[in-house]
């Protein structure tokens, strides 16, 4: 039913990403203090939000799977788990590049980096379970681990906020990015990366569902 929308959706997402790249590299000026490295911020913040969306997708897939056992739930968990790991990796990598430039150290046990490091480990273990787990029970086991891992996320965030000194700049709100063009590019970057992530999630879920259908057809011998 949605096949006729594949091409337009893909083109729209490609256009948005291209527009973001143009804005970041050709339109927005350099930061006075950090120079061109500051441009990494536009990918860093958006990737963090995209990671949260992927984690939420895993949570939804897990809850619905335990209630209904629909095959799309397992496919959603598989896709969400991979994308959560991918975007957490991007956040960590961009954060460490920023940290090295701004604080002269790639990792300073700064609260938000620690948060994403822990999320990265949680979703690394989730993906390892998808690879090495018992295939018969994989959907159930992924759902349980997905729920536990997702509930750990707010806990990690709040615990670090309460226990650590805030070194990370307040980028969003409360006098973060001041330049209007930079602020506009930052917001555009957040929206684009979230949409890009949703597109990848949709696409990857479809691939996982197709794999399941192919496996089922292979049984009819």
């Amino acid at each position: 039913m949605f096949r006729r929308f594949y091409a337009p959706i893909t083109l729209c997402v490609a256009a948005l990403v291209s527009a973001l790249l143009y804005s970041v590299f050709l339109r927005v000026p350099n930061d006075e203090w950090l120079g061109p490295i500051q441009r990494i911020l536009y990918f860093h913040v958006g990737s963090a939000l995209a990671a949260y969306v992927a984690i939420f997708a895993v949570f939804v897939g897990a809850l619905v799977h335990l209630a209904t056992r629909e095959p799309w739930c397992d496919a959603l968990m598989e896709a969400g788990g991979e994308l959560a790991l991918l975007f957490c990796s991007i956040v960590l990598a961009t954060g460490m590049i920023w940290g090295y430039t701004a604080w002269n150290t790639p990792f300073s046990f700064e609260p938000r980096l620690v948060t994403f490091l822990l999320l990265w480990f949680i979703f690394l273990s989730f993906n390892l379970l998808r690879i090495f787990g018992d295939r018969t029970r994989l959907a159930n086991h992924s759902a349980v681990l997905g729920i536990i891992g997702t509930l750990t996320v707010p806990l990690v965030i709040y615990s670090i906020d309460f226990t650590q000194v805030q070194l990370h700049p307040k980028v969003i709100g409360k006098g973060g990015v001041k330049d209007p063009l930079m602020s506009e590019t930052l917001r555009f970057g957040m929206i684009t990366l979230i949409l890009f992530q949703l597109f990848l999630l949709w696409f990857r879920t479809k691939i996982a569902l197709l794999h399941k259908r192919l496996d089922e057809r292979g049984d009819h011998d």
Partner: peptide, 8 residues
């Protein structure tokens, strides 16, 4: 029912 993607 199936085991390891094989319907039994």
């Amino acid at each position: 029912h199936r085991y390891h993607e094989r319907r039994v």
